[in-house]
């Protein structure tokens, strides 16, 4: 059955499609138009922000031959951190950092919230995964001698990142506020207090006073979700800038086979 065709609405002349001129270049297809649009938008952005140079510098730098799977451990650590950040944001939507309500809100997340236990589990086990990955990455760079000239600074930033990662897990451990986290944190703060000179001040600072109280929890929370993640993100940025600037090491047993004669000439 053929549907009756409706008459075309009376468009003004300039909106009506003009027939192709004979011999003119073929009209761009829809796909080409979209691509053209994308390029225009990217150009618009680049004209103002000049990002393309940096992006090209980062993405199209060369990576030495022989780079193996051990070299993926750094970006895997970064991925674990990003995963912690994302799951952490979702937990923060439901969590209340007050000594009286913290446990209830953690219980609420675990038992009531849709996928709550799953996200809490990802955050909890993600911390374990991140610690393992950061150690593996550190071991890789250690055994490959990657901390040597010119990458010393990368190593030093890395050590700060390890310390900050431990601070994250120490402060995060208290937040569910169950028996285990409460007592473990008391012991941890006491251990800090045994340190010479700064020890007592450090544990007083952590506890927010001489005793373990309501301030302790909010203090840990602020450190755990604002101070340290910010520092880690900034330092990862610096770390990656150095990776791109200096390049990743070649595996240590690789040698560029330079012409022996050439080498002798240089010497």
């Amino acid at each position: 059955m053929k549907l009756p065709t409706l008459p075309k609405p009376p468009l003004p002349k300039r909106f009506q499609e003009k027939p192709d001129r004979p011999g003119a270049a073929p009209k761009p297809t829809k796909l080409e138009q979209v691509r053209e649009g994308g390029i225009t938008a990217a150009d618009w952005l680049d004209e103002r922000a000049s990002l393309s140079g940096g992006l090209r510098w980062m993405m199209f730098r060369k990576v030495p031959k022989g780079t193996n799977w051990f070299y993926t451990l750094g970006s895997a650590t970064m991925f674990a951190f990003v995963s912690q950040a994302i799951t952490g944001v979702f937990l923060a939507m439901y969590y209340t950092p007050s000594a009286t309500q913290a446990y209830e809100s953690a219980r609420h997340i675990t038992n009531d919230v849709f996928l709550g236990e799953f996200v809490r589990g990802m955050h909890k086990w993600g911390s374990t995964v991140m610690v393992i990955l950061i150690f593996l990455h550190m071991a890789r760079t250690f055994f490959f001698g990657a901390y040597k000239y010119p990458r010393e600074l990368q190593w030093i930033i890395g050590v700060v990142l390890v310390i900050l990662t431990f601070v994250m897990s120490l402060t995060g451990y208290l937040l569910p506020f169950d028996q285990r986290s409460y007592w473990a944190t008391i012991v941890a703060a006491n251990i800090n207090g045994t340190g010479p000179f700064v020890g007592p001040f450090l544990s007083d600072f952590l506890r927010g006073g001489g005793d373990f109280g309501a301030t302790t929890l909010s203090r840990f929370y602020a450190i755990h979700m604002m101070l340290v993640p910010g520092l880690i993100a900034a330092l990862i940025g610096a770390h990656l800038y150095l990776v791109a600037r200096l390049g990743t090491t070649a595996p240590p047993w690789l040698r560029a086979d330079v012409d022996e004669k050439l080498r002798e000439e240089q010497v």
Binding site: A76, F79, A80, S83, Y103, A106, R107, T110, E117, F118, V119, R120, G121, M122, H123, K124, W125, G126, T128, V129, L133, P176, F177, D178, Q179, R180, S181, Y182, W183, F212
Partner: peptide
């Protein structure tokens, strides 16, 4: 890594002990 984290979360869960009580 993502698969590992998700699997651990599903298999091991996130237990919550009894409430902290001084």
């Amino acid at each position: 890594v993502m698969v590992v984290i998700i699997t651990m979360s599903i298999v091991l869960g996130a237990e919550l002990g009894p409430k902290a009580d001084p």
